[in-house]
C-alpha cells in the first residue's frame, strides 16, 4: 500500500492509495469515521432555562458543538482510574446569559485551559425579554459508534478512474460535447484533440461515454488504486485522523491475531 497526497484545504484531505483493496479502504473509512475518540458535551445540568427551546433540545445542541482538545490528555470515562470523573476524563463548562439576545457557542465558558470551543458563532438558543439561561455542562471523550456527536471525520473513497480517449473515433462536435457534458470538467479541447485535464476529478459517472454513443471514450476503474477523502468534522486535523486510524486498525489486527494464535 502506498499513499500519495493530492491536496488539503479547509480540513479536507485527498490522497491516492495504490496497491490496496476495497476491504482495506472500507476499514480505514469506517475507523476514521466512528472509532476515533473525540470530546463532546455529554451531561448538562440546567439551572435556569426560560428560552423557547426545551432543556433536552438545548442539551442536544450543546452536545454537537465541536470542541478543541488534546487527544493525548483525555481518557474514556470508563477506562479512567477515578470513580467520579476527574480532569483526565472530563471537561467542564458553564453558560450564563440573560435576554434579550441570541446565545452563541462563544458564550460558553470552558473551565479548563486546554479545552476550547472550535466555532464561536453557533447559535444555541434565543432569549426574549425577561428570559434567561444558566447551565453547567460536562464533556467526555467517546467514539462515533457511540454517538455521532463524537464523529471525527466524514470519509469516502472511489476507484481511481482510467479514461481512454480514441481521438480518431471522435468527431470535433463530440469532443466539444464531452467538455460540455462532463460535470467535473475533466476534459478540454486543445488543438483539435480531446485532452484530459485532471482524471482525479472524474467521478466515474460515464456521462461522457454515453454522449459519444459508447464509441471513442471508455471509462473504467483501477480496482487496486483509490482516491480517498477525509473531511474533518471535529477539531482534529485530517492527517492526525489518518494516523490515529492506522494505529487503531493495527490494534484491532493484533487483537484478532492474538485470538487466533
Amino acid at each position: 500500500m502506498e499513499l500519495e497526497k493530492i491536496d488539503e484545504e479547509d480540513g479536507k484531505l485527498r490522497f491516492v492509495v495504490k496497491d490496496s483493496s476495497p476491504a482495506m479502504m472500507n476499514a480505514i473509512r469506517r475507523i476514521s469515521m466512528n472509532q476515533i475518540p473525540v470530546l463532546a458535551i455529554e451531561d448538562v445540568g440546567i439551572i435556569e432555562n426560560s428560552s423557547a427551546l426545551f432543556d433536552e433540545i438545548v442539551a442536544q445542541r450543546l452536545g454537537q458543538i465541536p470542541l478543541v482538545f488534546d487527544p493525548k490528555k483525555f481518557d474514556a470515562r470508563e477506562e479512567c482510574d477515578c470513580e467520579e470523573g476527574c480532569v483526565n476524563c472530563e471537561a467542564k463548562f458553564t453558560l450564563q446569559k440573560e435576554g434579550p439576545g441570541k446565545v452563541y457557542s462563544g458564550d460558553i465558558v470552558s473551565e479548563s485551559d486546554d479545552v476550547e470551543i472550535l466555532y464561536d458563532g453557533i447559535p444555541i438558543t434565543e432569549l426574549d425579554e425577561n428570559q434567561e439561561i444558566e447551565l453547567e455542562a460536562t464533556a467526555i471523550v467517546s467514539i462515533g459508534e457511540d454517538h455521532s456527536k463524537h464523529q471525527a471525520a466524514i470519509s469516502s473513497y472511489q476507484y481511481y478512474p482510467i479514461i481512454d480517449v480514441d481521438q480518431e473515433e471522435l468527431t470535433d462536435d463530440e469532443k466539444e460535447e464531452c467538455v460540455e457534458v462532463c460535470p467535473r470538467n475533466v476534459f478540454e479541447v486543445d488543438d483539435g484533440k480531446l485532452k484530459i485535464v485532471d482524471e482525479k476529478r472524474c467521478t466515474l459517472c460515464k456521462e461522457c461515454v454515453q454522449e459519444t454513443d459508447f464509441d471513442g471514450i471508455t471509462v473504467t476503474s483501477d480496482e487496486e488504486k483509490f482516491i480517498f477523502k477525509i473531511e474533518s468534522v471535529s477539531s482534529l486535523n485530517p492527517e492526525d485522523i489518518l494516523e490515529k486510524t492506522a494505529e487503531i486498525l493495527d490494534g484491532k489486527a493484533e487483537k484478532v491475531i492474538g485470538k487466533l494464535g
Binding site: Q64, I65, P66, S105, L118, Y119, D120, G121, I122, P123, S148, Q151, I154, E231, V233
Partner: peptide, 9 residues
Amino acid sequence: CGKPVGHLW
C-alpha cells in the same frame, strides 16, 4: 452528514 454548519447560517 454531521458537518458543523450552525456558525455559517
